[in-house]
Design a protein around this nucleic acid. Sequence first.
RNA 1: GCCCCUGUCGUCUAGCCUGGUCUAGGACACCGCCCUUUCAAGGCGGCAGCACGGGUUCAAAUCCCGUCGGGGGCGCCA
Length: 496
Amino acid sequence: MDKIRVRFAPSPTGFLHVGNVRTALFNWLFARQNKGTFVLRVEDTDAERSSVEYEDNLITSLKWLGLDWDEGPESGGPFGPYRQSMRQDIYSPYTQRLLEEGKAFYCFCDPEELERNRKEAMASGKMPIYSGKCRTISIKEAKDRQAKEKTAVVRLKTPDEGTISYKDIIRGHLSFDLKLIGDPILVRSNGRPAYNYAVVIDDALMKITHIIRGEDHISNTPRQLLTYEALSMEPPQFAHLSMVMGQDNTRLSKRHGATSIDQFDKDGILPESLFNYLALLGWSHPEEKEILTKSELVKAFNLNHLSRSAAIFDYDKLHWLNRQHIKVLSTRDKAEKACPFLKAVGFMPEKMSDEIWAWLGEAVEDLIEGADRFSDLPEKFSPFFDFNPEDMDRESREILETECGRKVVTLLSAKISHTEQFDYDIFASFAKEIKDETGCKGKDLFHPLRIALTARTSGLKLDRFIYLVEEGVRLSFPRPIKSCTQRIAEVLDFMG
RNA sequence: GCCCCUGUCGUCUAGCCUGGUCUAGGACACCGCCCUUUCAAGGCGGCAGCACGGGUUCAAAUCCCGUCGGGGGCGCCA
């Protein structure tokens, strides 16, 4: 069997979203699994809507996700160019041949007239199909007219009877009634190839063996098959992927939140998490394993076992997977991933010293527990850098006003004022003494103690918190960490 | 409107091809318990589904037909 070649052919007319990227990912998995070739082809023929900005975004997003391609716009390859706008002159020899062989013809129909026909057909409950009106114009007459008017499009002559069918890798046998397929436009009146024509020639020339694309292309397939046939070219195999939907079961769009790939990075989702999640949307591991690395996915992936029905994108599950992938990161990696998020809120300095990296590493190990995303971290770090009794919530204030609250904080303050070096052991012995002296215990004891140190009712375990605060006091953060002694003093002061 | 695809817990899915082993398995979410003198995480457990209606068959989630629901397509867009 020939070496497998697949392609991802996006048009740079918007930010890459999860549906498209999943298509890219399945192509990539299939290529890598079969030691085949993954081609990136940019379909930028629509000059109106395409932009370099989107193309850059597309490439950045694919790379971020960990997809690499063997042939593509910047890397080149034996079947280039890989940017469709640079392939304009390769189509016309094929068009001439089809015209000469009588497999295609010039059509002079007015677009407005066609539009009218379409509307009429729909209104009378029929499928709108090109009438075949210009088929009978002789090639000589057509060429003369075209030379003068330059308004003709080239259409493929398709059979009027029978069916065309093929075997889809995912959906099995699919067949279409030829009566319902009009003569598709191959070349527009401005001389540029239409999509359905360009893809066929590009895919054929690039020797693509498997076309893995979205379900929205199913109805293009019979037209493309007919084109391959007219061209006497061997068609590739097709696999049509189900769509990815938003939570409300409608087509993915901006209002569904983070559907553009770069947004996931901004939200603190690891690329390997998105990768893993997207692979699981429509495919499942034979042993139903869910937390999978890229190489495990390459090994286990199977194009034949894809779901045929659309899937809803579920952020909860993505976040859960993200947590699993974060967990196995090294301390250093966790710290590095966390750093930009903490810099953004001014917790970390622009220039990180070794001491601060070390502190951050320890802190991250404690605080990432139970966090879904790195973007959760600023909130989790705020007890260190944003300590201010004024900002306490109602619950904390109320606890401080209780009898135990007042007694515990006052006593703690008195005890700590005699202490040079504070640590958790000292804190623990204070706590025991306070318990004995006040009779406050359990929640009544530990809640006020926590509030005195953090100005919050919940958070990190206090042994780790005290350790990190006392370590952090000595480091130069943009917003210095206040010592435990100072915190307690401020809370007491606040209580009046 | 017409054509095509699709329909298992709220969500992602296993099972369907090769009917019985399915009183339908797993995961996320949710609920409860345990752990923890907080919250989360973690451990354990629970709730919850074969869209509906007809066939075929001794037997149907699995095969056939219909209905309904969802999606896609019907461009000189890609």
